[in-house]
């Protein structure tokens, strides 16, 4: 046995804060794996996704929910999805996806590369309006829509997973700036 052990640490140390009616909380229990579709195997990939996660393949900009591992599949770009799920083995999410999809996609573990914040509560869209260039109106960005954009010069993936719930993911290297930008925006509409 080695005499030192590495301890997992969340990007924002499990940060949680409620400002006015909006709660901002780091999400630490989800794994994120990218799956790139090999050229010419769209049908095989869609079939593997349905068999493995019980999820339909989402169009770019949409997401679908599966019935295994609480999986949600995010359509990030024409040949790539991100799979967000509760990992049975937190140390090996890419292996889980690769096995579940029967190697029908090129997978990369992204879990520790992103800081994830969930914003919930009445007024969440008002807070996001200040920094998010996307149109988050119900008609344009209803529940299950997903998009990558930039907020305060930081790359952010925005997923609407409820009427008043958004999951935001931004690169871990700028996690604290990201949290600051989001919370400042909430503070400005909560006074």
């Amino acid at each position: 046995m080695p005499d030192r052990q590495l301890m997992a640490r969340a990007a924002l140390d499990g940060h949680e804060r409620t400002i006015g009616t909006v709660a901002v909380a780091e999400v630490t229990d989800l794994a994120l794996v990218s799956a790139a579709v090999p050229r010419g195997s769209d049908e095989a990939f869609a079939a593997a996704l349905a068999r493995g996660f019980g999820a339909a393949r989402p169009a770019t900009g949409d997401s679908t929910v599966g019935d295994r591992c609480a999986a949600r599949v995010l359509g990030m770009q024409p040949d790539q999805v991100f799979i967000l799920f509760v990992p049975p083995d937190p140390d090996r999410p890419a292996e889980t996806v690769s096995a579940t999809l029967e190697s029908a996609a090129y997978v990369t573990d992204q879990s520790d590369s992103w800081a994830m914040l969930r914003m919930t509560g009445a007024g969440v869209r008002t807070a996001l309006e200040r920094i998010c260039p996307l149109d988050l109106d119900d008609r344009v960005f209803p529940q299950d829509r997903v998009a990558r954009t930039a907020m305060e010069h930081l790359s952010v993936i925005v997923l609407r997973d409820g009427a008043d719930s958004f999951l935001l993911m931004s690169p871990r290297s700028s996690a604290r700036s990201f949290r600051h930008a989001v919370e400042l925006s909430v503070e400005h509409v909560s006074e």
Partner: peptide
């Protein structure tokens, strides 16, 4: 064409 109107700052 896939995502609708988006701000030029994203490009």
């Amino acid at each position: 064409p896939l995502l609708g109107p988006r701000d030029a700052a994203e490009f």
